[in-house]
Design a protein around this nucleic acid. Structure first.
Lengths: 246, 246
DNA sequence: CGATACCTTGATCGATCTCAATGTCGGTGG
DNA sequence: CCACCGACATTGAGATCGATCAAGGTATCG
């Protein structure tokens, strides 16, 4: 591992937190931000490749992913976690791993629960996050069930690009996407070799490239076409408030 | 469709509702059940094959499923809904369809939201349902990503069997499962013909059969083995209360 | 009895996997 | 500076799984 890891420390105060506008606590008005300090139970800096054992946390910097091992020792990546995302590591088979050097803010499950009991807005914010997670899983399911390799790759790249844009990362041309081809493959149910070939096809046709941790979108129209992109709005809950994050 | 549809009417009162122990409102104590009547905005009986256009509802009898159409006109089934399940039909691309003649209880989104604002327990019950949905999507994702056709079929049959058992349907030997092979195929990313062959293999090996709306499990051990079954507990949220439904 | 919906089977095709090299690039020790 | 190494990325050839296409078969219902 690098001698100079890129470990971004968190601010001491939630008031200064740069990801709060995209995170669970976005619904807490600035004047009451002090109250949520009690919910925090610590911060953590981890290296790329490290397993994360904490229960509930908010990504502050870096990428992480949740995965599960299959019978035969292969890996299925279930979701990627970006700054601002609330992540729960549960006791069942799913593991959480830092994809890059990352930092995050650990929450106390009990105190969060208690706080939500008094603040229905916070509970609904939590609901909104879960609903979005579910919608993302459904999109992914559609990819794995009914799209070919190029379509799956295209769809995932668009999903990640959209999520990054919404939190102010990258621009219409591209964004920082630190995935290795093995991550793509394990998220999309492909072999690494085939993920490579799908990416090579996108590159050859001048549609998109993924290189050295950077996604470049060269022809958004064709990329969407390949992906069968429907451009759903990010929120898809009839119950969740419409705060347009994700 | 049949001249004598099997349309089960709902009881007039929530107090008499037989699915409440498995449903969103399970957390409301018997003494306060009267209060939730205001949240109900009606009941509906639909025929197998009908699209369901209501926004938020609880399945009372029958099966439904959520699906989405792909670019090329194929269908991906995203989830199956059993009695007691809370279902949200949103404006985005996902459709909800009755798989059998079904009846359900329509909820008012606004009043449900308002009620959750005063009853954090209800909000957490909602969260528990969403968390379980997400966990199910993740399992399905693992199936589509990393299991072969027989494994996918085996896994889905075990999932449905477990869900049915938990609400008192069927027994260890089997249960009523009204899926056609086309539903299996569209949920699992297979062609109908291949779903048929996978099912035929299970039958030939004396592992399980699915016939005339009935699932028979002949060799649970081998079925689990094929599925890569891990037997996770039904609840997998660190935040949700542990009420063991699903 | 015919129609319809669903299930089953066979043959062939094609996408993707597997296995086996080879290439590339940044870092590291000499 | 250079040789080497490890982590990734790339490419090719052959094997497989599952899709597609094309028939039948079966059961139910009017």
């Amino acid at each position: 591992m690098s001698r100079n890891p890129n470990l971004t420390p968190l601010p001491g105060s939630c008031a200064a937190c740069t990801v709060r506008p995209f995170a669970l606590f976005r619904v807490i008005p600035q004047a009451r931000v002090g109250e949520i300090a009690r919910i925090r139970s610590g911060v953590r800096l981890v290296r790329a490749g490290d397993a994360i054992m904490d229960g509930v946390f908010t990504m502050y910097a870096g990428w992480a992913f949740t995965w599960t091992a299959t019978n035969d020792g292969r890996r299925q990546i279930l979701d990627f976690h970006l700054p601002g995302d609330l992540v729960e590591r549960t006791e069942d088979a799913a593991e959480v791993e830092a994809l890059t050097d990352s930092s995050f803010c650990i929450l106390s499950k009990e105190r969060l629960c208690a706080f939500m009991g008094n603040d229905p807005g916070l509970a609904l914010s939590y609901v909104e996050g879960l609903t979005r997670d579910r919608a993302r899983m459904r999109e992914r399911l559609t990819s794995l069930g009914r799209r070919d390799a190029a379509g799956r790759v295209a769809h995932l790249l668009l999903e990640l690009h959209g999520r990054l844009l919404r939190r102010g990362g990258g621009d219409a041309r591209g964004a920082a996407v630190p995935l290795k081809q093995a991550h793509l493959a394990d998220a999309l149910g492909l072999s690494v070799e085939h993920a490579n070939r799908a990416l090579a096809a996108l590159r050859k046709d001048g549609i998109a490239t993924l290189n050295k941790g950077r996604l470049e979108i060269l022809n958004r129209h064709e990329l969407e076409d390949l992906a069968g992109w429907t451009g759903h709005p990010p929120s898809s809950s009839s119950l969740a408030p419409q705060t347009m994050t994700g």
